[in-house]
Amino acid sequence: MEISRRDFFKLSGAATAGGFLIYQTLDAQKAAAEASLDLHKPIGEGYTICPYDGSGCGFLVAAEDGRVVNIEGDPDHPVNRGAACAKGASMRQLSADNERRLNKPRYRRAGGADWEDLEWDEALDMIAERIKSTRDANWIENEGESISRRTEAIGCLGGAALDNEECYLLSKMMRGLGLVYLEHQARI
């Protein structure tokens, strides 16, 4: 036997050292820091006001090719200072990407079991005709001796979800047509 006990220990020592060397090479913690990341999407520059409650919080919208990719609070807005609640932070899901959004005028005929698609022109023509016929057939020219000029057969609801310009035109149009049942969310 030519390998002495000493040699054996030497060899074992060398092998152990080798093992740890391998460990150092293969398993040691990486010293280098993780590389800096780019923003995975833009934060947003378009400015909007939240469509939810009456706080009037400012938001920034980022869109690519007309498609919303990010919405978050505008840090410079005095009311929300960049903040957004659960609804505000989810505002992106109101965008055209939400497949539940309506994208076509639709009509349901009397007694019909389902929707039918319409073109805009057709739809608005039909509505205009109905407004006119219902209004004219239910016109109240006088209340007793007094001039009254109204119709009580058409109601108009809504506005709190619209812009001021839309509300104003709605007010003007409906009063102009003689409606008196003009109401919206503020009442309920």
């Binding site: 060899l11 074992s12 060398a14 092998a15 152990t16 080798g18 093992g19 740890f20 391998i22 460990y23 293969l26 398993d27």
Partner: peptide, 15 residues
């Protein structure tokens, strides 16, 4: 355990 593992395997392989 991990360093020991490397050690044991190192010793065996060396042997």
């Amino acid at each position: 355990l991990k360093p020991v593992g490397y050690g044991v395997v190192g010793i065996v392989a060396g042997g």
